[in-house]
Design a protein around this nucleic acid. Structure first.
Lengths: 225, 225
DNA sequence: TCGTTATGATAGTATTACTATTATATTTAA
DNA sequence: TTAAATATAATAGTAATACTATCATAACGA
């Protein structure tokens, strides 16, 4: 591939676009590593600034606060997943096939993608597993939702729902089933890693394959007429 | 009913049992109201102490920190739900019936239960919707899990799973489907309230009835042989 | 080269999440 | 009934957090 790709994100997600400067890219890159390492609660701009040999004030010029930075990262991830789905389902017309590809993509262990240097997709995926729900589980969901912050996730959810409706137009809960499964896709991995009694997925075997089997089972059974 | 009931919780959930003193009960009661009002992130022991005309230090004698208090509240809730399921399924032997009763109980809007004065079940249910995932989405899940903090939730999950296995012993994912649905039960309400494009449940109609229909559909379809 | 913009350096503030100490009130046990 | 134990209140203190503000300097672009 020759052309450079870039995930274009809604400008409400940042104060200054981190993709346009060295410091910005460093903030994104290193925040992924640091959040993964110490967890979002313990993560602070102060600690990050030390990591990247910059200052708190400089980071605040890019992101309003650490929650916004998390939303930015998670949003990048969902946009990336949707781009991958679009790419992989191109020229495929059977909705069952398309849905399977999409399920595979949300359950697969991500490898780092050379098309997007500076972002470690595999580490980012772990952040999605551990922290993504915190993007919306906040008292000001409504406020930041109005700004359009969750567009990427909604769009992905609608993509899934549209495949489901194609498969069975009578099915009454395509969006609910999509959001439930998008959530389950990372939740089940979290449970396998930390609370094994809440899942049948065994971390000794291939978590991702089992998760794919699980989601395929419930989705296609639910869609049966 | 004459006998007084009490939900007996694992003693690792508190430093001093709040059910044994006036102050303790006030802490629990008012924390439910305050967390609901301002959200868990903004909630502090300082603010709570003002609300109940006590002091921060006194609250710290009951709970190690605010996260533990949240875990206590959510744990109380799941234990309560399991008690209700046990009660309502008593003398019922058809697993399909039992599962339906259980689904009804996790999707129903709770009314305040006179058997447990001092706890507003309806407000607590809203906390479950908004904050419950934060009990385990923390860097020290493994540590506090070892202490047995999540026993109530696991037990409830296993109850659901056991009904599923009774219905279809070949079904491979009873625990996963149970945890997915327990999570979906509050997630879908949250989405209906704040991110409607992620769900088919409309907040204009009866959220709880729709949610019951949704979960019943996917559970029983998934369990079909 | 002048003006704009980005970054760094430094300082400051209110709040948070505790811990510690002491005084006082209440309960219980001998 | 009195002494001892226990619970709570009152107060103070600390390190860290989540910012905001100011100013100097470096780099960059027209």
């Amino acid at each position: 591939m020759v052309a450079k790709l870039q995930i274009q994100l809604n400008s409400v997600l940042y104060l200054r676009d981190p993709q346009t400067s060295d410091l910005g890219q460093k903030i994104v890159q290193e925040s992924i590593i640091l959040i993964n390492k110490i967890g979002f609660e313990s993560f602070t701009f102060k600690k990050l600034s030390i990591q990247i040999s910059s200052t708190e004030a400089s980071i605040y010029r890019y992101f309003e606060n650490k929650h916004r930075l998390l939303v930015y990262l998670i949003s990048w991830y969902w946009n990336y997943v949707e781009y991958r789905i679009t790419f992989e389902t191109h020229n495929i017309f059977d909705p069952v096939e398309k849905l399977k590809i999409a399920i595979r993509l949300i359950t697969r262990k991500l490898e780092n993608d050379e098309n997007f240097p500076g972002i470690s997709e595999s580490e980012l995926q772990q952040i999605v597993i551990n922290e993504s729900d915190k993007t919306y589980l906040t008292k000001d969901v409504d406020k930041i939702n109005k700004e359009g912050v969750y567009k990427g996730y909604k769009s992905l959810c609608e993509t899934f729902a549209s495949y489901m409706t194609e498969i069975n137009p009578e099915f009454k809960f395509p969006r609910s089933l999509s959001s439930t499964c998008l959530e389950a896709a990372h939740q089940q991995v979290f449970f396998a890693q930390h609370l094994p009694r809440l899942t049948d997925i065994k971390k000794e075997k291939d978590i991702y394959e089992q998760n794919f089997q699980y989601l395929t089972t419930i989705i296609f059974n639910s869609l049966k007429k």
